[in-house]
Structures are given as C-alpha cells and as structure tokens.
C-alpha cells in the first residue's frame, strides 16, 4: 500500500514522538528514583562527617575531598599537555605524517577502555614507580584517560579562532608564541574549558580506574601519596557490598548534584567569556 507523503509524516511523527517520550521518561526516571530515595539522607552530618563502620554510619567527607582532589589533579596534569598538543597540531604544522601519528595516538587513547587504564596505572604508577595506591597515581592515570577529550576539544576551539586575529598580532610585531598566548588561546578559551570540564566530569564519575590506582581507603587523604576513596568508588562499594542502601542512594544523589554543578559552572564560565569577547 502506498501512503501519501503527509500520511507517512503523521505516522513517523507519532513513532518518533513515542520513542522520544519513552527515552525521556526512562532517563528522568533514573534521576527521580535516586532523588526520591536519596534526598532525606543528605544532611550536614552526612556531608561533613567522617565515615564510621566502613560507611554504614557517619558521613562521607573524605570521599568528597578525595573526589575534588583527584579530579582537579587529573585536569591540572591533562590540560597543559592537551592544550599544548592542540597548539602544536593547529599552529605549528600542516597535515603531515607527524600530525597523523599524533592524531592516531589521541584517537587510540580515546578508544582504550577504562579497565585497561586501570591495569596500566596499577602496573606503572602503583607498582613500578612505587607511588602505591595514591591520589597521585589515580590523578595521573585519569589524566591520560581524559587527555584525548581535551586535545580534541582544544583543537576544535583553536581552529575556530578567525585567522585575521592572528594576522593583526603578527602585523603588530608579535612573535608566534606571543600571538598564541595573547590572541589564540584567550579566544579559544571557552572551547578549551568545555573539554576540561568534560574531562573533570569523567574523572568524577570514574570507578574502575580509581579502585585500581587510588585504592579504596576511607581515611582523609592528607598528601598526594595517600590512598583515597572517591564518591563514585564509595557508592560502588556501599551498593555492591550491601553495606547501606540508604547511604548509597545519598552518595549517588550527591554525585549527580556534583555533575550538575560542574556543568552549570561550565555554562556560566563560557557565557561570561564569550560575552566578554564580543
């Protein structure tokens, strides 16, 4: 049977609308479910208390601190490397076998599953380089995990900077490096920040890598060489070992809030920066 195009359109509209509705319901069910079960758990004592009896009681402060430290550490290591790589790819070379090798490296790194990063970080940083399970080992491993994202987004951002801006700088006698630092990077900043924020979000959410490299100690980390348990790992252990479902929901809700905050901060930063530039 041949349907008229407009009848087809109606059918397709309904099908797509139904699938979209279903998708949104499923996704928002997850947030709603966690919120309804976790909201009452989050109190000041939960946020700022020390865990007791393996997290069955007390708060989760050390895991919050560990999460902040480890994700900041990861982006602090990955950002200079990632932006540096992107600057080289965009500003210093044309397409050549060298850039192809570098891009291949970044793409291949992006395809490595997190469990492999975990194994690698355990063997190299924890055992070989004798860092032990530590914030440092975890931050380093996470940094290489998020590196491809930062390279990719920075590259796009740098390429989007109009060429005539660079010409203006050169015509004023600016050296290449000055042009990059004063002109290109500031203008590419919103895009670069997006990549950094994405990387930070991935670090916050990661479990497998962190268990293998930063460990799962519940003590408050005091130095880069201390082992630590991030919120995502704490949630995994609470839920999986059945230590406390309540606290698991509370931790999950906090994780979602943390991701939300990171996103909101990113939007605000980008909004401010792009407005300034106009």
């Amino acid at each position: 049977m041949i349907l008229r195009p407009l009848a087809w359109q109606r059918i397709v509209w309904f099908a797509l609308a139904a699938m979209t509705l279903f998708t949104l319901v499923v996704l928002f069910f997850i947030i709603g479910f966690i919120t309804s079960k976790g909201a009452h758990v989050i109190t000041l004592k939960f946020l700022f208390g020390m865990p007791e009896r393996m997290g069955k009681e007390g708060g989760i402060l050390p895991t919050i601190i560990a999460t902040i430290y480890i994700s900041l550490l990861a982006i602090a290591i990955a950002t200079p490397i990632g932006v540096g790589s992107a600057v080289y790819l965009c500003e210093y070379t044309r397409e050549s076998p060298i850039t192809r090798v570098i891009r291949f490296g970044a793409d291949a790194l992006a395809g490595v599953p997190s469990i492999i990063f975990g194994l690698f970080g355990f063997i190299l940083f924890v055992i070989r380089l004798r860092m032990g399970w530590s914030l440092l080992a975890g931050g380093l491993t996470l940094a290489f995990m998020i590196l491809p994202t930062i390279i990719r987004t920075s590259e796009e951002a740098i390429r989007a900077v109009p060429y005539n801006l660079r010409e203006v700088s050169y015509s004023l006698g600016g050296a290449k490096s000055q042009t990059i630092v004063r002109v290109v990077l500031p203008n590419a900043l919103p895009g670069i920040l997006t990549g950094v924020i994405l990387g930070m979000g991935r670090s916050v959410a990661e479990t497998a890598v962190v268990i293998f490299t930063a460990g799962s100690s519940l003590l408050m980390p005091k130095s880069l060489f201390d082992p630590a348990r991030t919120m995502a790992v704490h949630f995994y252990i609470l839920a999986r070992e059945g230590l406390s479902m309540e606290r698991a929901y509370g931790t999950a809700l906090l994780l979602i809030i943390a991701i939300l905050l990171i996103n909101v901060v990113a939007y605000l930063l980008m909004y401010r920066l792009t407005r300034k530039m106009r």
Partner: peptide
C-alpha cells in the same frame, strides 16, 4: 610543544 604533542602517542 612537539614533545608534548607526542605524549599521547607515547602513552
């Protein structure tokens, strides 16, 4: 910068 750019490949 070239050195930095090769760190992903090295990794």
């Amino acid at each position: 910068l070239l050195l930095v750019a090769f760190s992903a490949v090295a990794m």
